[in-house]
């Protein structure tokens, strides 16, 4: 499962839990009880929820910080300049091979653009911003041959939706593209 699917699944599960709680509250609202014991139970749930969020949530968020996209490759990558302009992408090269570690040096000549790398199924793999006057270095290693796309992910004006570039990735083992 890719990151998007895990995200969607976790979101759905947590929201469903919230929905179940709300349906329960809705259904029992008319059965009047004294507030003090209800409040006492609520405070107990609150304490449990608070500590669960601390004990489970914080380690998860710290763990998820281990794999940040900001680091550049330890081994010498192939550096490819990628420049966005209104409204096209200009890359040093548009053909790659699998196994190659590529470092896209992303910038812009005019306004902010978004360098969004998509695979042949239309799934977003990685992205970084293209900001004028700055270079954002995005490291990526292609593992599957095929046709990829760069699509603009930062609103940049009239042709934002048509700033698309095809990249081809060949099999690095010397086999065919299929």
């Amino acid at each position: 499962m890719n990151v998007q699917s895990v995200t969607a699944l976790v979101t759905t599960l947590v929201v469903l839990v919230i929905v179940v709680v709300f349906i329960n509250i809705r259904r029992h609202a008319h059965e009047a009880r004294e507030y003090a014991p209800v409040q006492g139970t609520a405070y107990r749930y609150r304490a449990i929820l608070f500590w669960v969020m601390i004990v489970v949530g914080l380690p998860i968020t710290v763990y998820l910080l281990r794999d940040l996209p900001y680091a550049t490759a330890a081994t010498a990558p192939e550096v490819v300049n990628a420049t966005g302009s209104q409204w096209n992408w200009d890359l040093d090269k548009e053909e790659f091979t699998t196994g190659q570690i590529v470092e896209f040096n992303v910038t812009s000549t005019d306004v902010n653009h978004g360098f969004g790398l998509y695979d042949q199924n239309g799934t977003l793999l990685a992205q970084t911003q293209a900001m004028p006057g700055y270079i954002n270095r995005l490291t990526y290693q292609f593992t599957t041959p095929g046709t990829y796309k760069v699509m603009c992910l930062e609103y940049c004006g009239l042709v934002h939706h048509d700033m698309i570039l095809d990249l081809t990735v060949a099999d690095g083992n010397g086999g065919s593209n299929e």
């Binding site: 709680v21 509250i25 609202a29 008319h30 009047a32 209800v38 139970t41």
Partner: peptide, 8 residues
């Protein structure tokens, strides 16, 4: 939710 729960 606590205020609403079984509030009648």
């Amino acid at each position: 939710l606590a205020i609403l729960h079984r509030s009648g």
